[in-house]
Design a protein around this nucleic acid. Structure first.
Length: 340
DNA sequence: AAACTAACCTATTCAAGCC
DNA sequence: GGCTTGAATAGGTTAGTTT
């Protein structure tokens, strides 16, 4: 289960929507409901269509204004749903309980779940959707520090990335259960899988492509740094030149199934931590300490982040830039006068 | 393959309603 | 007035469909 099945609007449906858009690009919920009935799609789909159409119109206006800089300067009438007032839905305790319970199981319900919740609560699906959005923004996943209590203390509900606004979530945050699995312990330069623990949710897996560092934490199912990477560059190529701590289990122990453990390619890393800084766990009981080390490594990575270009500095940056045939960022280029 | 676009996301803001 | 929270916005990504 993932997204709602994509609808294909007929030309007459589009015409109707456009006509309504002409009249009012910001329809209130009553109007949207009326329109939904009229063309036979859901109110939330109406909402989405208007959002998209406003964006398109804005873009067209912008492009138009570029061509025709000197316009009349006449303001179009501006409608806002707010100005029309909107009825506030009052959730009963019964409804809230159902939603909270569902939220604790899954912060990112897909359309099927939302529909089911809508049925159970008697609320429109669009209200369920909004409720989850609000809930996510106001009830972020448990912060990293709780790790001190050990991974077992983390709630089962933390299945999805904590893409909250302020702090980058740490990999530790994503560890969800007593299967503090080796996968979860690998640094994020490893191929798909490590830290990508959102698979428990119903969302589909986005690709690791992100261009804006400002958006870095918004849309990564890898809840760490994937979003910081420049487009087309994989983490292994640029970002994680600084070796993350890894578990160093005694070699050759036949009792260990090392195939599933995050062992540790850092001998060859150009920026490998000196041995003293590498965390060496003797067994899995050292996991909390390992995770702490991981966090520290992670913070040091952040400290080297170059936000305006989306690169880490400096050595691997050059490698990557050579690959991309890009000039180095200004602050990494030696200036003619030798200044920085 | 590129363009288009519905679906979905976060961040932010406004405001209703309760205390 | 402060707080909680439903509702709306803008601006972004993802992925299915069309060209």
């Amino acid at each position: 289960e993932a997204r709602r099945r994509r609808i294909i609007l007929s030309q007459s449906q589009k015409d109707t929507l456009c006509a309504w858009f002409e009249k009012n690009p910001y329809p209130d919920i009553a109007t949207r409901g009326q329109l939904a009935k009229e063309i036979g799609i859901s109110e939330s789909q109406i909402l989405t269509w208007f959002q998209k159409h406003r964006k398109n119109q804005k873009r067209l206006e912008w492009e138009g204004s570029l061509e025709e800089c000197q316009s009349q300067g006449q303001e179009k009438p501006h409608f806002k749903a707010k100005e029309l007032g909107r009825p506030r839905t009052h959730f009963t305790k019964f409804q809230t309980d159902i939603l909270v319970e569902a939220f604790e199981k899954n912060r990112f319900p897909g359309i099927a779940t939302r529909e089911e919740l809508a049925k159970r609560t008697g609320l429109p699906e669009s209200r369920i959707h909004i409720w989850f959005q609000n809930r996510r923004s106001r009830h972020p996943d448990r912060p990293v520090n709780s790790l001190a209590e050990g991974p077992h203390s983390l709630p089962q509900s933390s299945q999805c990335p904590a893409s909250t606004s302020s702090a980058l979530p740490s990999p530790c945050e994503a560890v969800t259960s007593n299967s503090v699995s080796a996968r979860a312990l690998s640094p994020p330069d490893t191929s798909p899988g490590p830290l990508d623990l959102s698979r428990g949710c119903e969302r589909q897996q986005p690709k690791v492509t992100m261009t804006e560092s400002s958006q870095a934490v918004q849309r990564t199912d890898n809840p760490t740094l994937a979003g910081h990477l420049p487009t087309g560059v994989t983490p292994g190529e640029v970002g994680f030149h600084k070796q993350a701590p890894c578990l160093l289990l005694p070699p050759g122990d036949p009792s260990e199934n090392t195939s599933s453990l995050p062992l540790l390619p850092f001998k060859d890393s150009p920026r490998a931590l000196p041995p003293s800084e590498q965390f060496q766990a003797q067994d899995h009981r050292d996991m909390p300490l390992f995770l702490k080390c991981w966090d520290e490594w992670f913070q040091s990575m952040l400290a080297e982040w170059v936000p305006d270009r989306g690169y880490w500095s400096p050595e691997q940056t050059e490698i990557t830039l050579r690959k991309q045939q890009l000039p180095p960022p200004a602050h990494l280029s030696p200036r003619p006068d030798g200044t920085q």
